[in-house]
Simulated scan of single mutants.
Amino acid sequence: MHDPLTPAILFSQMEPPAGRSSDFHEWYETDHIPARMALPGFSGARRYRALQGSPDYLAIYELDTLDALTTDGYRALKTTPSAVTEEMLSIVNGFTRYTLRQIEDAGSRETGDYLSAVAFAVPDEHVAEFDEWYGGEHVPMLLEADDWLRVRRYRVVSGEGGPWTHFALHELRTLDVMESPERARARSGPLRERLADQPWFGRSGRWLYERISTHASPSRLASSIPGVTDVA
């Protein structure tokens, strides 16, 4: 069961085969994202290029709630994809897809040009201790850095491509903040030291991304324009 009021995201990584990069980007920007932005419950999307880690590209779809994935419109996209979607998904490499339910949103609401994504496979018996460290110690220490803008934490609802149970998305204004004294302190706190020797702790997934495009649903765009309250 999930809380119908809790925000969620779709998190999907992949990369095109050699020689198909232009086709890959055109597909995402003109087919895949617009089709989803037209659906109820899909409020925005962002695409990223990897600076560290692989696969090379990440797409994040912002969902008002997980119920956005149960609509007839979304089911139709999944069961009867466009021809170009069917082709692209048959040739991409490194495909992952995770449905993530938000459990924490800390910091400002500013979107950074860079994103640090971290994933953990936390055993059930360590979840409470992990949450105490990440939410109670690690995140507050990171946010002391001016350019560490926002941290959103998620629990995996369903996943394809890795063992992960928890994700954290860190919005960064600059890359330099990754070398900041605040981050160094956050990586050596007392609660962290209690977990550091656990085998699963050292097997985290880590990626550093640069944002390449941002999209909003038509209804979200309309609501941001003075005097416009609906879209026909």
Rank of each mutant, 00 (worst) to 15 (best):
P55D: 08
L58Q: 10
R20Q: 15
D67K: 14
A35K: 10
S43D: 09
Y28S: 01
D64S: 15
A38Y: 09
E62M: 09
G53W: 05
A38G: 07
W27H: 00
A50V: 08
G53R: 06
W27T: 02
H32Q: 13
P55S: 10
G19D: 07
G19K: 00
P34Q: 04
L66F: 12
D31L: 04
S22V: 12
A59E: 03
I33E: 01
L66W: 09
F24K: 02
L51V: 08
A50H: 07
L51K: 04
L51P: 00
T30W: 04
Y48D: 07
D23I: 00
S43P: 00
L58F: 04
H25C: 01
T30V: 05
P55V: 05
G53L: 04
R49Y: 06
D31H: 06
D31I: 15
H25E: 14
L63F: 11
R47T: 14
Q52V: 15
D56Q: 15
Y28A: 04
A50C: 09
Y28D: 04
Y48C: 04
A38H: 09
A59Y: 07
Q52W: 10
R47D: 09
D56M: 13
L51W: 07
H32M: 11
T65K: 00
E29L: 08
A45Q: 02
I60P: 03
H32W: 07
A45W: 01
Y48L: 05
A38L: 13
Y28R: 03
S54D: 10
P34E: 03
D56E: 15
G44N: 02
R49M: 08
I60C: 11
A35Y: 10
E26M: 07
Y61L: 10
R47N: 06
G41K: 02
L58I: 03
Y57P: 01
Y61Q: 01
S43I: 13
S54R: 15
L63I: 11
L51H: 09
P34T: 03
